[in-house]
Amino acid sequence: MGRDKATLPVAGPSGTTTMVERIVDVVATRCAPVFVVAAPGQALPELPDATILRDQVAGVGPLLATGRGLRAAADAGVEYAFVCAVDMPRLTADVIDILAGPAHRLGVDVVLPWDGRDHFLAGVYRTALSATVSALIDAGHRSMRALVDRVDTQRIVLAEQAALTNVNTADEFAALEPPALRQQM
């Protein structure tokens, strides 16, 4: 994309913010504490509703960052954490609600939405999995699939929906945003 997705401007209910601010606003309505895992040196706006954790190594993939966030949530006394990517500008708290219920009711390790594909970075994870993540990383794994394939994972079938859409290219982002914001990119 050529630009840090976390700081891209995105329209939300309270006006234009950055993607990371939008995600923190949504997640904070259902989760506490909220942790944002950032790359080393990554510039982020003030996030009063979140604690920023810094990755120590850049470019290793989401598994390491997920483990770091799960460890912080476990240290805060939380049993389950909603893990999501910052590039989901249409994420809603409803997604968290849909996944959190089965996690607590079934006692599984991971609950993922499935709409024809797994959404690894929009799921509820047991925070005790941070030890499993560390072992996987030590064994050379970097993908979220490596984790969910080794633990008790429940998939919740959902219709395709905008809330699970992530943006990976400037064209995908532009398709979601009003014309005025496209010019700011």
Rank of each mutant, 00 (worst) to 15 (best):
A174Q: 00
L147N: 03
V108E: 02
L129P: 15
D94E: 12
G116H: 05
A139V: 15
N168G: 11
D97H: 02
L164C: 07
A163Q: 11
H141L: 03
M144L: 11
P102C: 15
G123F: 06
A174M: 07
T153C: 10
R126Y: 11
G116N: 08
G107Y: 15
A100W: 10
A131E: 14
A175W: 07
D152V: 10
T169Y: 06
A146H: 05
V95H: 05
A162G: 11
D97F: 03
R117K: 08
E172N: 04
L136E: 08
A103M: 13
A170R: 14
T127G: 11
V157H: 11
N168I: 05
R105P: 13
A170Y: 06
D115W: 03
R90Y: 12
L91V: 12
S130F: 13
G123I: 11
R155N: 04
Q161M: 04
R145Q: 05
R126M: 05
R145T: 06
V108W: 15
L121V: 13
Y125Q: 09
D138T: 12
L158W: 03
Y125N: 10
L158G: 06
A139L: 14
L91K: 05
Q161I: 05
P102I: 15
T169E: 01
L91C: 07
L164F: 01
L129I: 13
G140A: 14
T153R: 09
V108H: 10
Q161W: 00
T165V: 09
